[in-house]
Amino acid sequence: MTTIQKPLRSRTRQARRQRAARSPRWLLIGAEVGLPVILIAAWWFASAGSTNIFFPPLQTILARLWQLTQTSEFLIDIGSSLGNLVASFVIACLLGVLLGLALGTSRFLSWLLEPVIHFFRAIPPVALVPIFVSLLGFENETRILSITVAALFPVLISTIDGVRANDETLDMVSRVYRLTWSERLFEVVLPAAAPRILSGMQVGLIAAFVVMIASEMLGSSTGLGAKTLLAQQTFTIADMWAGILLLGIFGYLATFLFELFRRRVLRWYIAAQQQERQL
C-alpha cells in the first residue's frame, strides 16, 4: 500500500507546485490589490449622483464621517464602545482560561458542570442582553457583563478541550522529570493547549463584538451601536452609514490585531506546522 502511496504523494506535491507557478506573480499580486480598488471606485462613482435616500453618495458618507470624528461626543462614543470591548474581552479570556484549566484537569468538576455550560453556550449570547438590562438597568456594567459572558463560553470550552486533548506522554515525561506543579502548568499544559485556546478566543472576540453592538442598540444612549441605530431611526442616513462603515472597520481591525497576537504567541506551533507540510 505504502509503496504505491509514496510516489503518488510526491506526484501530488509536484502538481501543486506546478499549478502555483502557472500564473505570473505580478498578475496575482496585481489582482489582489486591484480588485478592491476597483470595487471601491465602483461604489464611489455608482453612488456619486445617487438620489436614493437609503444609499447616499460615498463622498457624502465619508465627509460626514470626517465631520463626526471632529466632535468630542462622537469620540467619546467610540472610546466607550472600544473600551468596553477590550476590557470585557480581557476579563473573559482570563476567566475562561482559569475555569477551563480547573474543569479540564478535574474529571469530576467537568462531569458536574459540562451539561450546564453547554446549555449556556447554546443560548444566543445576544438573548442574554435583555436579562442583564432588566436586572442591572442601562448602566455601563450591563454592557461589560453581557460582552464578558458572550466571550467567556467559547474561551472556556476550547480551554477545556485543549487541556483534555493534551498528549499523555507529555504529562508522564514532566512527572518523571519532577517538574513542579506550576512548571507543569506554565511550561507544558498551557503551551500545548494554546492553539485551541487561542482559536476559542478568536470565536469569543467576534461574539464579544456582536454583543458590544447589540448591548448598545438595546436601549443604551452611548456607544457607536446606539448612535448608528439612533441615526437609522431618525433617518439621518449619512450618519447611519458612517456608523456602519466605522463598525465594519473596527470589526476587521479587532480580528486583525488578534491574529497578529496569535501568530506571535504561536510562532513555534505555526512554524512546526509549516515544516510538517513541507515534509
Binding site: 500564473s23 496575482l28 489582482a31 478592491p36 463584538f209 447589540a214 442598540m217 441605530l229 447611519m240 480580528t255
Partner: peptide, 29 residues
C-alpha cells in the same frame, strides 16, 4: 489561483464583520 488572489483582500475584510453591523440599513430597506 487568479480569482483566489483577486478576492482574497475582499473576503478577508468582510469575514470578521458580523451581520449586526449592516442591520440598520437592511431593516431600513
Amino acid at each position: 489561483p487568479l480569482v483566489m488572489h483577486a478576492t482574497r483582500v475582499i473576503v478577508e475584510f468582510f469575514k470578521p464583520i458580523p451581520p449586526i453591523v449592516v442591520l440598520p440599513i437592511v431593516v431600513l430597506v
